[in-house]
Amino acid sequence: MTEPTVLTVILNYRTPDLTIRACEAVLRDMQGLSGELIVVDNASGDGSADRLREAAAAQGWNTDSRFRIVESSRNGGFGAGMNLGMLAGLSDGAAPDFYYLLNSDAWPDPGCIRELRDFLIATPGAGLAASGVRGVDADPHSTAFRFPSASGEFEAAARTGPISRLLRNRIITLPLPPTRTPVDWAAGASLMIRRETFLATGGFDEHFFLYFEETDLCRRAALAGWETWYLPDVCVTHIGSASTGMKVWRRTPQYWFDSRLYYFTKNHGRAYTIGTTLALIAGTLIWRLRQLIRPKPSSDPDGFLNDLITHAARRVLGLAPATPKPVAALPEDSR
């Protein structure tokens, strides 16, 4: 029997040094596995692709066809870049059995890739498997979630004990599971996808530039009958937001609001989207009131509430569900 193949895809956007470190970790972890690593440069425009090629040549990554660089002609965001890498397939033109998506600022622990692959092989109903994620300070990151909802958004914005207790079964961010367990969705920082699941979903919806694309993919996978699992006992180290700068946002970018609105409208319709936005506004107002009563540090970017209201008022009236862009055919199945 031929060993199942894994294609690891790393998306680079102006983080060549971090990407090189991620490549080194991946190639070490894929020793003894059948598969390849592909780096998609998402139109960085800063010489990243040349820097990656130089590193590959210096470290001998090009000698056995296990490493490639693909340059995108545009920065279409996370989903578009990952789709490009997955659709490229293996160097012989075949489609792999599994796709492992890894952030450019993440490094898998030894055995991580094999464990994710073997779990999917042993669990026929699982279409996606996410590893645990820790920071460089060794603190675990919350990367397992429930699907967003109006009540979940209200709870997350209000950040108030009685509300959280009342809506405990709707809280979007799950407590870190102690054992392997199915979840609604998991972050794409370290995520393995079964080929059949990619075929069933068509890959990422490229209408999302950044954020909510993994949520949407896992939701479509669930509707197609595939589970998403979270495996806390295998892990990657992740810096976080190296390309997006989310940790130091002074204002929430337009694309975050666009992605949020598109996700809810596509999956739940316009009326529910309006209700969810009103719930988010109401929760944020409750948090603001709490700050007036008892000063608390704000975790929201500057102008978040005003930007949310302005964006919703401008977009909701003309909002209509969009049809996801079609994804090109996968490379020929080698089975």
Rank of each mutant, 00 (worst) to 15 (best):
L7K: 13
P16Q: 11
T19N: 01
R21L: 08
A22V: 00
A22M: 00
A22C: 03
D29Y: 06
Q31I: 07
G45M: 05
S48V: 05
D50H: 09
A56V: 03
A56F: 03
A57P: 10
A58R: 15
A58I: 03
W61P: 00
S65N: 15
R68M: 04
R68V: 00
I69C: 01
E71A: 05
R74G: 13
G79D: 07
G81L: 05
M82C: 12
L87N: 11
A88D: 12
A88E: 11
G93L: 04
A94F: 02
A94K: 09
Y100I: 06
L102W: 01
N103W: 05
D105W: 03
P108L: 04
P108R: 12
I113A: 04
R114W: 03
L116H: 07
D118M: 07
F119T: 06
P124C: 13
A130G: 02
R134Y: 05
P140S: 14
S142E: 15
P148C: 01
A156P: 02
G161E: 10
G161D: 09
L167C: 08
L167I: 08
R168W: 09
N169R: 15
N169M: 09
I172H: 12
P178D: 07
T179A: 15
P182H: 07
V183I: 01
W185K: 01
A186C: 05
S190M: 05
M192A: 12
I193G: 09
R195D: 05
A200D: 10
T201W: 00
G202K: 10
G203M: 07
F204I: 02
H207N: 13
L210T: 08
C218V: 00
R219V: 03
A224M: 04
E227K: 12
T228E: 04
Y230A: 12
L231T: 01
D233K: 14
T237M: 10
T237G: 14
S243C: 06
G245P: 13
M246C: 13
W249F: 08
T252H: 11
D258F: 03
D258Y: 06
Y263W: 07
F264R: 11
T265I: 07
K266G: 06
N267Q: 13
H268A: 15
G269R: 02
I274Y: 12
G275A: 11
I281H: 11
G283L: 08
I286T: 12
R290H: 15
Q291V: 06
R294K: 15
G303P: 02
F304K: 09
L308D: 03
L308R: 12
G318K: 02
L319V: 04
K325W: 01
P326S: 06
A328I: 05
P331Q: 10
E332I: 10
S334L: 04
R335W: 08
